[in-house]
Design a binder for these strands. Structure first.
Length: 332
DNA sequence: CTTAAAAACCGCCAAC
DNA sequence: ATGTTGGCGGTTTTTA
């Protein structure tokens, strides 16, 4: 996409990508904070700025933000035309009407091809602007019923952390916004840089968009899941080994059926699916930072043969390993 | 790209 | 009464 056209030569782009957050009266402070944290802070550890972050208010007067703050935007509307990404960090309420200026602004941006993202209830603003008909989106589970009623033409998937449908990226409750932002960094600059940003956030790994939302609930289900997180850590350390459901179940002392069920409850996805995703995310890092052949990588990561790696890679990332390497060859 | 065998997945349900 | 387990077998996905 964008990266391909803008950075044909050698490495990733050097011009910061312009990101604009729309702010409003009643701003949800936490969601805005996520965006500011990821796009707005300097990254001295990377030696250059990845993003040029601005905020724009479409309403006049002094704007309140949740928690008793008053906020003022950095820029006015005139910079929207040069924004490459516009983010709506939440919205003041599911029943709060979206003013025309918001709808007009977003429609115009969408037509220009600007990438548009929402966090949590921000999806109401995109929907009100009519950008989502026929699109697949997600939002916080507590809005699902209401949203479906109000916007029956939008395909809402309630169990995802975030969803990208062409130029529109929507995400679920607050912390899923972090995952979605990291996803965006990864699309723009590759997994290595995204991981470095994530590391500074003290988030260990980037979660895939299709992990179920309920694993966000902070209280881990029950005690026996400890065995699962232990197993997952061990698997990550030895991805090259051969595993089967039967052997994994045995190593946790559960029956196959119970193992499958507990694993899904714990991580939001089936065991082998999780394992291939782990293998794939490691494969991306190898592709970005080493010159190992696809054969060698598949060997190191337990894919069995390179064909399988290629197949899985294509299937989940929509790009072949070698093209991925061309696009994201590392150059921090 | 197609294909067939193998493996994984998951709803169902009787049994704790 | 409520919740978990684990085998069965049909369907989907993976592998080679």
């Amino acid at each position: 996409m964008e990266i391909m056209t803008k950075s044909q030569n050698a490495s990733v782009r050097l011009v910061p990508h312009k990101v604009v957050a729309l702010i409003y009266d009643g701003l949800t402070t936490f969601e805005f904070g996520i965006v500011a944290e990821i796009f707005g802070l300097p990254r001295p550890e990377l030696g250059r700025d990845l993003y040029d972050f601005r905020s724009v208010a479409l309403e006049s007067g002094s704007l309140r933000a949740a928690g008793g703050l008053l906020v003022k935007a950095t820029d006015n509307m005139s910079i929207l035309g040069s924004a490459e990404t516009i983010i709506v960090p939440g919205w003041r309420g599911k029943d709060s009407e979206v003013p025309e200026i918001f709808r007009k602004t977003l429609q115009a941006a969408y037509l220009r091809g600007t990438r548009i993202m929402s966090i949590c209830s921000g999806v109401y603003v995109l929907a009100a602007a009519g950008l989502l008909d026929g699109k697949t989106v997600t939002t916080h589970w507590r809005y699902v019923k209401d949203f479906k009623n109000k916007f029956p033409n939008v395909i809402l998937k309630p169990n995802e952390l975030y969803i990208q449908d062409e130029n529109i990226l929507t995400s679920a409750g607050s912390s899923a916004g972090i995952d979605a932002c990291l996803h965006m960094v990864r699309m723009d600059y590759g997994a290595t840089i995204a991981n470095s940003v994530a590391r500074r956030l003290v988030m260990h790994a980037h979660r895939q968009g299709d992990q179920a939302q309920y694993i966000e609930q902070p209280v881990p289900t029950s005690g026996g899941d400890h065995r699962l997180s232990l197993l997952m850590e061990n698997l990550r350390l030895e991805l090259d080994k051969v595993y089967s459901i039967t052997s994994l179940a045995a190593s946790t002392g559960m029956s196959v059926r119970t193992f499958q069920r507990r694993f899904v409850a714990f991580t939001g996805m089936a065991p082998m699916k999780w394992l291939t995703l782990e293998r794939l995310s490691q494969a991306r890092i190898f592709l970005e930072t080493t010159s190992l052949s696809v054969d060698e990588i598949s060997d190191k990561l337990g894919f069995g043969n390179a064909e399988t790696l290629r197949y899985q890679f294509r299937k989940t990332l929509d790009i072949s390993p070698s093209n991925y390497r061309k696009r994201f060859r590392c150059s921090i």
